[in-house]
Simulated assay, not measured.
Amino acid sequence: MPRSASANREMREESRRKILAAALEVFAEKGYNGATITDITQRAGVSRGLASYYFPSKHLLVEELLDAYLDQVAAIIEVPGPPDAQLAAIIDGTLRVTVTGLPMQGVILGLMVQPSTHPIYAAVEARKDERLRKLEDNLRAMFAARGSAEPEVEEVMLRSVLEGVIYKAVVYGARYPVERVRRRLYRMYDLPQPEDTLSGEEPPPVSRLRATERGF
């Protein structure tokens, strides 16, 4: 009995998801330049022909991953509620995604800054310019509602601080004191201290940060 159109669509989407997940893993292990399509297809358990049908080049795989990343950022920032609740939710959403997906964050950061892939990131950003402008405007409106005299500067600063936290967490992995930093961010923005932790466990004392060869 032939499969229905919806079943075929689901199979296609599942194949795409498997290929993208495999690409993320291989990029995390070998970097963009060291990874090959063969590495990715073997990890995904699909034929090279199928992978090439959906993604004829690594370039397109990177574009899809970065596209999904920007959508994830948008989802974190687009939260309802009064300004203080919005800001707390943005901080928590960013840090939660960071601690639950450090390898992915490392891959994305690498793709953003590597000379060979930065132009791809810039192209994806340009394609999403309208949505990104809306997000920036929403953040600026939030800071204006909180009484900021320079909401545009506050928007840039918040994004810079959170991106810096993500970078450090990627470099130092589980040793990075995400929960302590979270509470410091709450104080910096005069937010009521959170009553719980992101992990559900009491954060350990802050130690000295040193990278290890084992990475994450």
Score class of each variant (00 low, 15 high):
residue 78 E to T: 11
residue 67 D to A: 07
residue 107 V to R: 00
residue 6 S to Q: 14
residue 62 V to N: 05
residue 8 N to L: 15
residue 177 P to N: 05
residue 80 P to I: 10
residue 6 S to C: 07
residue 188 M to Y: 10
residue 135 L to Y: 06
residue 160 S to H: 13
residue 107 V to D: 10
residue 28 A to R: 00
residue 198 L to I: 12
residue 100 T to S: 06
residue 7 A to H: 07
residue 66 L to Y: 10
residue 179 E to F: 04
residue 74 A to D: 12
residue 6 S to F: 12
residue 133 R to Y: 11
residue 23 A to S: 15
residue 18 K to I: 07
residue 37 I to W: 01
residue 29 E to T: 14
residue 136 E to P: 00
residue 2 P to C: 03
residue 133 R to C: 12
residue 152 E to T: 13
residue 95 L to I: 03
residue 123 A to W: 01
residue 98 T to S: 04
residue 52 S to Y: 13
residue 212 T to D: 08
residue 207 S to L: 13
residue 107 V to A: 08
residue 41 T to Y: 06
residue 116 S to H: 11
residue 200 G to E: 05
residue 60 L to V: 15
residue 56 P to W: 11
residue 10 E to C: 04
residue 58 K to P: 10
residue 191 L to Y: 06
residue 179 E to R: 01
residue 187 R to W: 10
residue 52 S to I: 08
residue 179 E to N: 04
residue 51 A to M: 09
residue 1 M to F: 11
residue 136 E to R: 15
residue 190 D to T: 06
residue 142 M to R: 12
residue 168 K to R: 15
residue 135 L to V: 02
residue 196 D to H: 08
residue 29 E to K: 09
residue 125 E to M: 10
residue 27 F to E: 05
residue 77 I to Y: 10
residue 197 T to L: 01
residue 84 D to L: 09
residue 171 V to S: 14
residue 210 R to V: 15
residue 149 A to D: 14
residue 107 V to H: 05
residue 136 E to Q: 14
residue 55 F to D: 05
residue 84 D to G: 04
residue 112 M to R: 15
residue 166 I to Q: 03
residue 64 E to S: 13
residue 121 Y to D: 02
residue 99 V to T: 08
residue 28 A to G: 10
residue 198 L to P: 06
residue 187 R to I: 00
residue 107 V to P: 09
residue 94 T to H: 08
residue 143 F to G: 05
residue 204 P to E: 11
residue 145 A to G: 05
residue 196 D to G: 02
residue 48 R to L: 07
residue 92 D to H: 01
residue 189 Y to I: 03
residue 125 E to C: 10
residue 110 G to T: 08
residue 160 S to E: 09
residue 75 A to T: 11
residue 79 V to N: 01
residue 97 V to S: 12
residue 115 P to Q: 04
residue 200 G to S: 04
residue 55 F to I: 07
residue 70 L to E: 14
residue 93 G to H: 01
residue 18 K to D: 01
